[in-house]
Amino acid sequence: MTDLYLAPLWISLRTVLVATFVTFFVGIAAARWMARYSGRLKSVIDGLFIMPMVLPPTVVGYGLLLLFGKNGPLGKMLLHFGTTIVFSWWATVIAAVVMAFPLMYITARGAFEQVEPNIQDAARTLGASEWRVFWTVTLPLAWPGVAAGTVLALARSLGEFGATLMLAGNIPGRTATIPVAIYFDIQAGEKSQALVLVGIVLVISFAALAAIAYWKGRTPRSKGFLIT
């Protein structure tokens, strides 16, 4: 029982770490691609990427359920390989990634677009490949924005509730993340247990904010100092 008592904490930590890791790279890739893409479908794709942010989480969760359910296209494919995502731990990760992605994408894209084109062109005329331009010039200069997006994505995935509940359900010890567990603890009248989890979330959040403040104070250059 003590194992189950703290289980939501470990589930949430694992979910948040994996989801943030995935969102970080997928978000940056999407942002870089869209910052350079100028096709006709630009606004359509852009809207699609931002969609999870404006839709109610339960709607997104229901959409994911349709997608990954037994009759959904992705669900069928996974069933073909003898597995299913719905109501598994991976479902918490998928829900968190989908909900956190728009924040990472929007922030990173804004940061990439803010990097002065001349500076990137200068790197190109100096012989740097597009890949090198991105890693040595664009990303370092956009770093404050990218870091902010990562923090937002992390917070969003830690707080994810609606879509997680729809796709992953509430299986204690497997898919019950902290927000889900708190809700069901309250429902079940286990106020003290909920309070412990609330305390844990508060500590994690304060620690994260303190770390960001410390890091910002130590690196004044991280503010994005574009010469004009």
């Binding site: 002065e116 001349n118 500076i119 062109d121 200068a122 790197a123 005329t125 040595t136 010039v137 200069l141 100092f225 574009l226 010469i227 004009t228």
Partner: peptide, 10 residues
């Protein structure tokens, strides 16, 4: 290429 605003890597 020497840009008008120099475009050094800051």
């Amino acid at each position: 290429f020497v840009f008008q605003n120099y475009a050094l890597f800051p």
